[in-house]
Design a binder for these strands. Structure first.
Length: 598
RNA sequence: GGGGCUGUAGCUCAGCUGGUUAGAGUGCCGGUCUGUCACACCGGAGGUCGCGGGUUCGAGCCCCGUCAGCCCCGCCA
């Protein structure tokens, strides 16, 4: 009997999927799920599946007797069976090169059905080319969907990534410390998930949106280097890349500057991507926020292709083009992208690009096309020879322009740039362009109210050079905040934190948090900062997104064992669900019925 | 909060301009078959056309509402 210490139990000696030609001649006991079955009348073949893979079991009545053969022939798909038998080489004509175990099979001596299964609601084993069941079915019958080899691979990869992160961070001297799940509600930022308190009538806990305050306090407490694979919760609407509960690798360290966190993160990414089968090289590229916005219109640009934005204000400034003139007169600019070979895009495609630009707030999208030496398009007649020269369009090129405030042109041209690259098919496969975006502004301005808000979060330290700007020109002040971006997707964000309580008060006051409010919401942090706080900073990285990228999955749901739907429901278990009236009373909670009671 | 797409057999889908008894593949059940691996072959069962209302002589198909899933905008410090 061959055994393997990480596979063997008292009931089985090996996993199905781990058997190879070298095991031929040995006796094994297997336990697995019936993935498929072929009944040839005399001989019966079972495909037996476990987390390692699938192996063929042959059930020959000459060896096991008619009764066992009949039982094997009658077993339903997805039933759990125990098989005892000998690993044998298949006859040469019977080998299956598509299977990792295809050189061998297990010749059964006994077959015992220990977990009979009703007919599965959705197929687990699919024929080549057979469509996946709908997302809804898959989520409703998640226990079956998770049996699919693809999802097993994803979930196992996720495990390996988390182990890699733990190993790397522990090796760097980081301590894994848990922080509370029942926390204080924070009116800042995203909506909290709220948990009513039984012992404190009318009071509530919140589930954490991040362990931010706790990890800062751990630095105050002297733990020096902290990490946690932390579950976080946000009661916001969902997207394909956003779940209401998600997992972050959360890191904080003392006596660090940005360069320390950058180095640590790059080291971690090298290890994670190696675990995922990719060799990547550190250090990563850097762009300041200002450069990223200027060149790509985005704070998380995809660098796998060009199509950079350029400032065309000077080209259009002297023209009679009304759109350009009015934008410039109101302090805006004309910005554009040159699209090499873009003249091949159809009018309809460019119209769709314009729709995207309008959706981002632009009034429209000006187009110029050069074919041969001929320049065509609505603005062409306004451009003199000098302007044409500066456009620097080659034959077959297209240029697209948006006019207005930078906020609008950036958003519009960012979308146009991404969609153009997709339409032209110039986004290369298999290229990993990691990027640090640094020097985010301290504050953003709510266009509706004009109020200042933190770009990152209110605990982010200002750039040392820009501290004086806080009081004179806060919108120009840069923060020591940084994002790590891959191919246009934000994978992590972090900052150096404020450790000076006086500075923290100043920043609070700029974003409209007065002394009393600050004390009420963040009093415990402020006290901590007054009690001897080291300079500190950190970062948080999205485990789900990283796992999705490395698994090549199309959705976060494919790397989360039990994900929620776009309305934050768990279809399998039926959450959320009502609570008995008596329980609500205990929690001092009453459901408002109808508008009158709201 | 808003927009788009989808919902027909266990599963994946087709269903024409509103017109007879709603079809296919697969799965399931029964039968034949000793080297298959999408086994093959023969036979069979299986439908609240998401739900509610309306228009019509007649609705899977048209209209209104509603629920669910997916995608997007807003939102996500």
């Amino acid at each position: 009997m061959t055994t393997n210490s990480t596979e063997a139990t008292t009931l089985r000696s090996r996993r199905c999927g781990s058997l190879r030609a070298a095991d031929a001649g040995t006796d094994v006991r297997l336990g697995g799920w019936v993935h498929g079955k072929r009944n040839l009348g005399g001989l019966v073949f079972l495909d037996l599946r476990d987390r390692d893979g699938i192996v063929q079991v042959s059930v020959d009545p000459a060896l096991v007797g008619e009764a066992v053969r009949d039982a094997a022939a009658a077993v339903g798909k997805e039933s759990v069976v125990l098989v005892e038998g000998e690993v044998v080489r298949r006859p040469p004509t019977g080998e299956n090169r598509d299977m990792a175990t295809g050189e061998i099979e297990v010749r059964a001596r006994s077959v015992r059905v220990v977990g009979p299964a009703v007919t599965p609601a959705i197929p687990v084993g699919r024929a080549k080319g057979e469509a996946l069941p709908s997302e809804e079915q898959r989520l409703r019958h998640r226990y079956l969907d998770l049996r699919r080899p693809e999802l097993q691979r994803n979930i196992i990869l996720r495990h390996r990534l988390m182990q890699t992160a733990r190993r790397y961070l522990a090796g760097e001297g980081y301590l894994e410390i848990e922080t509370p799940i029942l926390t204080k509600p924070t009116p800042e930022g995203a909506r909290d998930y709220i948990v009513p308190s039984r012992l404190h009538k009318g009071e509530f806990y919140a589930l954490p949106q991040s362990p931010q305050l706790y990890k800062q306090l751990l630095m105050v407490s002297g733990f020096d280097r902290y990490f946690q694979i932390a579950r976080c919760f946000r009661d916001e609407d969902l997207r394909a890349e956003r779940q209401p509960e998600f997992t972050q690798i959360d890191i904080e360290a003392s006596f660090v500057q940005q360069a320390d966190i950058v180095r640590l993160t790059e080291g971690l990414f090298v290890e994670l991507w190696r675990e995922g089968g990719h060799a990547i090289v550190a250090p990563f590229e850097h762009l300041t926020y200002a450069d990223a916005m200027e060149r790509y219109g985005s704070d998380r640009p995809d660098l796998r292709y060009g199509l950079e934005l350029f400032d065309a204000t000077a080209i259009f400034a002297a023209t009679e083009l009304g759109i350009a003139r009015s934008a410039i007169a109101t302090g805006g600019r004309v910005r554009g992208i040159r699209v090499p070979k873009g003249a091949s895009l159809s009018r309809k495609q460019v119209d769709e690009l314009e729709t995207l630009a309008k959706g981002a707030g632009a009034g429209g999208l000006l187009r110029l096309k050069r074919e041969g030496s001929e320049l065509s398009g609505p603005p062409a007649k306004f451009l003199d020879a000098g302007a044409r020269e500066r456009l620097a369009l080659a034959g077959g090129d297209l240029a697209l322009f948006a006019a207005g405030a930078d906020r609008v042109t950036s958003a519009a041209l960012d979308r146009v740039r991404q969609e153009t690259a997709r339409l032209l098919g110039i986004v290369p496969d298999g290229v990993l362009r990691f990027l640090w975006v640094t020097d985010f502004p301290m504050f953003g301005c709510d266009p509706a109210t004009g109020a200042l808000g933190p770009t990152h979060h209110p605990f982010t330290a200002p750039h040392p050079d820009d501290a004086p700007l806080l009081d004179t020109d806060p919108l120009r002040a840069r923060a020591q905040a940084y994002d790590v971006v891959l191919n246009g997707m934000e994978l992590g964000c972090g900052s150096i934190r404020i450790h000076d309580p006086e500075m923290q008060r100043r920043v609070f006051s700029h974003i409209g948090i007065d002394e009393e409010t600050a004390q009420r919401r963040f009093g415990f942090l402020l006290e901590g900062l007054r009690s001897g706080a080291p300079p500190h900073g950190g970062i948080a990285m999205g485990v789900d997104r990283i796992a999705m990228l490395l698994a090549g999955a199309g959705s976060l749901r494919d790397v989360i064992a039990f994900p929620k739907t776009t309305t934050a429901s768990a279809l399998f278990e039926g959450a959320p669900s009502p609570v008995p009236e008596a329980d609500l009373r205990t929690l001092h909670v009453r459901i408002a019925n109808g508008a009158g009671e709201e």
